[in-house]
């Protein structure tokens, strides 16, 4: 499969990827290296992992990062209750025997990272919002990402049965370490241009009126140029389009009051909602409706 074919496959499953992103994804899957995606919220970083899993017909294993995420919840944990029961059940056997029994794979709880490398078919492993996890966690990740293996002191090293396709996403809330960056292929996902965004909208909502679709995309594109705290992403645009077509709007200029009310799909802070009053909406609509 060449990278163009991958791009077409993605398009067929409703994900329109830019050339840069398609090449990055292609290289990551061919060279079995993790892929680090950065970009604004709502540009489709997480979505691409889902679509990749769909294309390769494999599992998607997702690890949502948060502050305080540790090895226990992300790599593995011993099943203490089960171990304790076992110890109490075989009280009379020698301690070495018990030890070798309770520290075996049977008593191991696999968390996402270990799960991902022990699957029969290589899954897609999505490590979402890695910038939210602590720096300590990045260090754990390095071993998994560079050698695809996990070291468990009691059991030894578990190597990957299949190498997962790893996708890391980051919103840039903190700088990632160079060590992590160096192990990954990198791509920055930016807001799509008008044509691409239109293609995305038509792929996702195929029944939408073509003229409305174009108006929606151009409206959102010009809204992104306004001074907003949080610019609407592609996901917001799709929500809005779904809302408008659900309301039976045929043209943006039809019902200004209703249109203004639907902007809640796009503007997610109070300040932004104040920043785009009816007057601004009407000006933007006038630009896109000719």
């Amino acid at each position: 499969m060449s990278w163009k074919e991958l791009q077409q496959d993605l398009a067929a499953s409703c994900y329109i990827a830019s050339n840069e992103l398609a090449m990055a994804v292609y290289l990551a899957s061919e060279q079995q290296r993790p892929l680090l995606l950065e970009g604004e919220a709502g540009v489709g970083k997480t979505e691409i992992a889902k679509q990749l899993a769909a294309i390769h017909k494999t599992n998607l294993i997702r690890l949502q990062c948060y502050e305080g995420l540790d090895a226990n919840t992300s790599i593995y944990e011993w099943n203490y209750q089960k171990q304790l029961l076992r110890v109490q059940a075989v009280r009379d056997s020698s301690s070495d025997e018990i030890e070798s029994q309770i520290f075996s794979e049977k008593y191991l709880l696999k968390r996402p990272l270990l799960e991902a490398i022990t699957q029969a078919k290589a899954p897609v492993l999505l490590i979402d919002e890695i910038d939210r996890a602590d720096e300590e966690f990045e260090a754990y990740l390095l071993e998994v990402l560079s050698d695809y293996q996990v070291s468990i002191p009691e059991l030894g090293t578990i190597s990957a049965t299949s190498k997962p396709l790893v996708v890391l996403t980051s919103n840039g809330s903190r700088d990632l370490s160079d060590a992590l960056r160096r192990r990954c292929f990198y791509s920055y996902v930016s807001y799509p241009d008008t044509e691409t965004e239109l293609a995305i909208l038509q792929a996702r909502l195929p029944h939408i009126n073509a003229r409305l679709a174009e108006q929606i995309v151009r409206f959102v594109q010009s809204l992104r140029k306004e001074e907003l705290e949080k610019k609407p992403g592609v996901a917001e645009m799709l929500d809005w389009a779904a809302a408008l077509s659900g309301l039976g709007v045929a043209k943006l200029s039809d019902n200004p009051t209703e249109l203004q009310a639907t902007l809640v799909c796009l503007l997610k802070t109070q300040i932004d909602q104040y920043a785009v009053p009816q007057m601004v909406t009407e000006r933007l609509v006038a630009q896109v409706v000719e």
Partner: peptide, 23 residues
């Protein structure tokens, strides 16, 4: 070898993926 080396656009995309590491 994975891409068409005659196409400089592809070579650029490839190098971009590999060599860049921040925005």
């Amino acid at each position: 070898p994975l891409i068409d080396i005659e196409e400089h656009q592809q070579v650029k995309l490839l190098c971009k993926t590999i060599c860049t590491s921040n925005k």
